[in-house]
Amino acid sequence: MRIVVLVKHVPDATADRTFDPADNTTDRAGVDGLLCELDEYAIEEALKLAEDRDADVTVLTMGPEQASDALRKALQMGAHDGVHLLDSALHGSDAPATSLVIARALERIGSYDLVLTGMASTDGGMSVVPAMLAERLGLPHIGFVGELSLADGTVRGRRDGDSASETIEAALPAVVSVTDQINEPRYPSFKGIMAAKKKPVETWSLADLGVEPAQVGLSAAWSAVESFTERPARGQGEVVTDDGDAGRRLADFLAQRKFV
């Protein structure tokens, strides 16, 4: 069996993330990037599933040159091989285009049983690519899964939604996005880091996937950022040190602001 894990390379959230003023896209050059931390849970889950059965774990990313770092980290954690979707025409692609390209790549991989993804990318953070992908491929999708099991060609997941906790079943192949509740991602071991150097990574262009450049990228995006403004830093308000009556002073503040 083959499990494909989708991993994204994202700007480090602890750095000052910003936009490229030239075209209002996320600045991916000025800020250090890394493997989206929410995708580590998907990698970990795939590795755990693969340990219990005869399965290969393929990691797939779509992104610029430096996105190969995200693949490398996943290979160091233990994934078997990688696919990098790389093409200069992809710059500025939105979620519909991203899902289209990844769908074509999965078709090219062909024999896969399960596609695991993170619950959201930490830059765009839309949580829509997995559902779009499932829609395009006509596959079932179980989103926001906090507990997962596989048996007899069926995937079963627990999804903790807003108003209910649900158990969902679907036949394989399926797309499943997992939350940070599902496991504790491992760190790459020294052995893993050495082994990753020899693991195969294929790079596919749009031509390899039969996708026209005009279908993707900024000019084909189905939505456009018209402007962005940096939010003024929240000025620090009054901070008092408790000397016995800070609770009352807090109540005063809340009353002043009409919350009481």
Binding site: R234, G237, V239, G247, R248, R257, V260
Partner: peptide, 28 residues
């Protein structure tokens, strides 16, 4: 967290919160 507050209390929540709750209840 204090860098983004409109109002902050440096203190132990176990005494500050009950006092605030009582004061709010009294005002109401």
């Amino acid at each position: 967290i204090f860098a983004m507050v409109d109002f902050g209390v440096v203190g132990d929540l176990r005494s500050v919160l009950p006092q605030a709750a009582e004061e709010i209840a009294r005002r109401k």
